[in-house]
């Protein structure tokens, strides 16, 4: 009878977990991260443009030499140090979903750093150029690669003004079950879409940055006027990288 009992466990677990997440009534002592309005969607409900997920990066708070967001992304999404794969690829050929960029002011010589990743544009050049439509933007503003129909032409990488994408140069075997990735296709930051869909209400990078006490990365819903990210962006001047291209990025910066 044990099989049936376990089946029952599983079913109960998933039903309860789903209901619990949906109502926001998480078990005592555990709180949902309330950074973004993380109302978990029912599993069978499609994403909609009611939300637009985005990040606000405060480069003033980004601590020099800190790499916590990058490491957290690697662990969460199974690339770089988060995976045993890509041993044959050159450093130039290895995937990088997020990187810290050091900026040195040409006039004053002052230096600061900030994390760069896919900027989740509202008008993404990568989706424009993709011949098969594998590069696409989800209704909630997340730009993704549908690797099922990606032919590996790499035109999106040519078109991306942020150099946010990587091509996989060899066979992979150590993927995370939540983050499929493989040889001959292009990939980039997914804004931790599996976490968002699960109702975590944050991304690995924002989580790690908060845990380290910097709070330089804020995740949230740009469409919700009451979200912390919207309120902060209303109060403070923010910029888009390459704003001249008018792409209306989902990732915004302070202090560049």
């Amino acid at each position: 009878m044990s099989e049936q009992k376990i089946d029952q466990y599983r079913r109960d677990f998933f039903t309860k977990a789903t209901t619990a997440a949906a109502t926001g009534a998480i078990a005592p002592g555990v709180m949902l991260m309330s950074v973004g309005q993380a109302q978990a969607r029912p599993l069978d409900e499609p994403v909609s443009n009611k939300n637009r997920w985005g990040l606000l990066v405060d480069s003033n708070k980004c601590s020099d030499g800190c790499n916590a967001c990058v490491t957290a992304c690697e662990t969460e999404n199974g690339w770089g140090s988060g995976s045993t794969d890509e041993q044959k690829s050159d450093p130039d050929q290895k995937a990088q979903w997020i990187r810290t960029v050091t900026l040195k002011n040409k006039l004053t010589g002052s230096e600061h750093q900030l994390p760069m990743m896919c900027q989740h544009c509202e008008e993404p050049p990568c989706t424009d150029v993709c011949p098969t439509g594998a590069s696409f933007k989800r209704a909630d503003g997340i730009v993704l690669v549908d690797k099922h129909i990606c032919i590996g032409c790499r035109y999106c990488m040519m078109a991306c003004p942020y150099k946010a994408r990587s091509f996989i140069h060899e066979e992979l075997n150590d993927q995370s079950p939540d983050v499929p990735r493989g040889k001959g296709t292009v990939e980039s930051c997914t804004l931790c879409v599996h976490k968002i869909d699960r109702g975590d209400g944050t991304t690995a990078c924002a989580e790690a940055c908060k845990k380290d006490g910097h709070q330089a990365i804020m995740f949230g819903d740009l469409n919700d006027p009451n979200s912390e990210i919207s309120i902060t962006m209303k109060k403070h001047a923010t910029t888009q990288i390459r704003a001249d291209l008018n792409l209306n990025t989902g990732v915004r910066y302070r202090g560049i």
Partner: peptide, 12 residues
């Protein structure tokens, strides 16, 4: 990417 700055990173 960043006019007016000299930039460097692990991604070239």
């Amino acid at each position: 990417l960043f006019p007016g700055f000299e930039v460097s990173s692990s991604f070239g």
